[in-house]
Design a protein around this nucleic acid. Structure first.
Length: 590
RNA sequence: GGAGCUGUAGCUCAAUUGGUUAGAGCACCGCCCUGUCACGGCGGGGGUUGCGGGUUCGAGCCCCGUCAGCUCCGCCA
């Protein structure tokens, strides 16, 4: 037996006990005579003392110890001498007086200090096995485990069955780029790794499972971000005979339980809901961060016949004029204005109109065109005060909202760093965003595309408009947003073959393609498919927020870097030419 | 594909306006140290300043190119 206790366990009441501990040398303090080491395992740290007067052999050996050696220590638990207890440490009242020590394994000099948080991330990723020894990473992975445990318990109690679906599945043209897996048995044919178990979970509903969930690994071959990895984990769930409100209540209950059991916090009984249109109008985002204000104001009517032709022109072209009030930022520099303008342009704006309110005056290149009435409307609706900076966007509705929405996010970060805006670090602002449009215009082809996915059910009131006014059709689709991060989304699905066909028609997907790609689904829908719906929660993002981390890489044991490489195992990598021959694949030389 | 930031010892950083032998703390090695807990003290080793080119009497610093990392846009729910 390697150990009788773990390193976070021993207390005063164990005094006098003979114990064995095993773990890593966290730090050593070698006094020449007395030697102290902090022995660490997953559960904590215990001080071990080597005294040459009681155990000369162990004391002699202890000089050899270095950081991260793995050792086994045998000794007696002893209360620390008067005045030497360490109140910072749960085990700080005692120490283990070593009678014997066994070095189970040595460690080379570390490539970087494990107690330093500001180390290059590529180095941390290369030595991930060391990185995960750090207390913070251990805590993050433990939190993740606890979240998943609560989710499984919660869904189990609510009658959901955990069912696995294939990883080797079928490529579909919709959505993200697929990761492909070549078939050896069928040369020239490919499996695709699932972007989500979407079709399978709908088929499970047709199959009468009624309530399904899966902690599902999903794959998307797109460029990475701080909150996007090529492989990530979804809590995927689907239920039969649901209403949208039932799904909301289910997820709210799950979140409440996670916050209770993992963070010890109580969340509200109901989460607020907001329509997509309102979210865009007020926050310029379909995942608004409602922890701070800076809401968008609408001045379309005010400037309809303004003498400022840029605004009036935008309105007459069917567009809008929107503005935000950036509080306390009238001291913005010319350089910063330029930077904001560049940013607005990169989001599709033609320029960025602004007003500084300084010394009781409105300083701006455009304000001379404004009538008193226009000024009053701005002043009143944006609550304009001394020291404010007003920013405008004019043009097409969605683009104008998005431009200001992105500036709003950027400025919130900037103002926070300047101490001009404070966001409650303990705030957990959940929000349901619902009534998304069913369709969007594909900017490349100009054709309709599914906003969520092609199986999304239209809002019952709008179903008739699919052929006549598709862009005006709302979907029974919803996202759950936490502090401005989209942590999940889903929809009520189409369960009738006829409606599904209508949908494919609106999307201009040719019949042969429909049969080829989705024939099995349509066939399933013709055999008594129940009404069904569900959603998927991005587990990595959820845990990231719970851990207060700024990247999902901090809550994934072995993540990939921004170029989709694993720096530790060096994947992706070349393969043997025999492997390629088996697959009948040839690599084109550049 | 595009933009921004970063790149100096194993790690974290410094190096005045372009100026002599590129420094410090930690880590590593050696010696000393019996109540430390980021122990302390003395000494030592360790550098192609990411790489290539240019300007200059002289480049870590300026210019051009390139590579790498991160963040964002595009892309992606």
């Amino acid at each position: 037996m390697y150990r009788t206790h773990h390193c976070g366990e021993l207390r005063k009441e164990h005094a006098g006990r003979k114990v064995k501990l095993a773990g890593w040398v966290d730090s050593r303090r070698d006094h020449g005579g007395l030697v102290f080491i902090d022995l660490r395992d997953r559960e904590g740290v215990t001080q071990v003392v080597f005294d040459p007067s009681s155990s000369p052999q162990a004391a002699e050996l202890s000089h050899e110890l270095r950081s991260e050696f793995v050792v086994q220590v045998e000794g007696e638990v002893s209360p620390r001498p008067e005045g030497t207890a360490n109140a910072q440490l749960p085990t700080g009242a005692i120490e283990v007086r070593a009678a014997n020590i066994l070095v189970l394994n040595r460690s080379g000099a570390l490539p970087y200090p494990l107690d330093d948080t500001s180390v290059n991330e590529d180095l941390r990723l290369e030595y991930r096995f060391l990185d995960i020894r750090r207390r913070l990473m251990q805590s993050n992975l433990h939190q993740r485990h606890r979240v998943v445990k609560v989710i499984r318990d919660d869904l189990d109690e609510k009658g959901f069955w955990e069912i696995e679906t294939p990883i080797l599945s079928k490529s579909t043209p919709e959505g993200a780029r697929d990761y492909l897996v070549p078939s050896r048995v069928h040369p020239g044919l490919f499996y695709a790794l699932p972007q989500a178990p979407q079709q399978y979970k709908q088929l499970l509903m047709v199959a009468g499972i009624e309530r399904y969930f899966q902690i599902a690994r999903c794959f998307r071959d797109e460029d990475l971000r701080a909150d996007r990895q090529p492989e990530f984990t979804q809590v995927d769930l689907e239920m039969s005979f649901p209403s949208q409100e039932e799904i909301f209540a289910l997820v709210e209950g799950m979140m409440r339980r996670i916050w209770k059991e993992v963070l010890g916090m109580t969340l509200p009984e109901e989460f607020p809901q907001m329509g997509y249109r309102q979210a865009m109008d007020r926050f310029g985002s379909d995942k608004p961060d409602t922890r701070y204000g800076m809401e968008l104001g609408d001045f379309t009517e005010v400037f309809r016949s303004s003498s400022f032709k840029i605004f009036a022109g935008a309105v007459q072209a069917g567009g809008v004029v929107k503005a935000i009030n950036v509080k306390k930022f009238a001291d913005v520099t010319t350089g910063q204005i330029e930077q904001l303008t560049e940013m607005a342009k990169s989001f599709g704006a033609k320029g960025l109109a602004w007003i500084k309110v300084e010394g009781g005056e409105w300083k701006s290149p455009i304000v001379k065109f404004f009538s008193d009435c226009e000024r009053q409307s701005l002043s009143k609706n944006l609550n304009v005060e001394e020291g404010d900076l007003i920013l405008f966007a004019a043009g097409e509705w969605r683009a104008s909202c998005e431009i200001l929405g992105r500036l709003r996010m950027h400025l919130a970060e900037l103002l926070t760093s300047q101490g001009k805006l404070s966001i409650d670090p303990k705030a957990w602002n959940f929000l349901w965003v619902k009534d998304f449009p069913l369709f969007m215009k594909d900017p490349e082809t100009g054709r309709l595309a599914a906003m969520h996915h092609p199986f999304t059910r239209p809002h019952p009131e709008d179903e008739q408009k699919i052929e006549t006014d598709p862009m005006g059709v709302r979907a029974q689709a919803y996202d759950i947003v936490l502090n401005g991060v989209e942590i999940g989304g889903g929809s009520i699905r189409i369960h009738e073959a006829a409606l599904q066909k209508k949908m494919f028609k609106a999307l201009q997907i040719p019949d042969e393609t429909v049969q080829e790609q989705f024939g099995h689904l349509l066939k399933a829908f013709s055999f008594g498919a129940p009404p069904h719906g569900g959603l998927a929660i991005g587990l990595d993002r959820l845990v990231m927020l719970i851990c207060g981390a700024s990247s999902i890489r901090e809550v994934i044991a072995f993540p990939k870097n921004a170029r989709a490489q694993d720096l530790m195992s060096h994947s992706p990598s070349p393969v043997e030419s025999k492997q390629l021959r088996d697959l009948q694949i040839e690599i084109k030389k550049k």
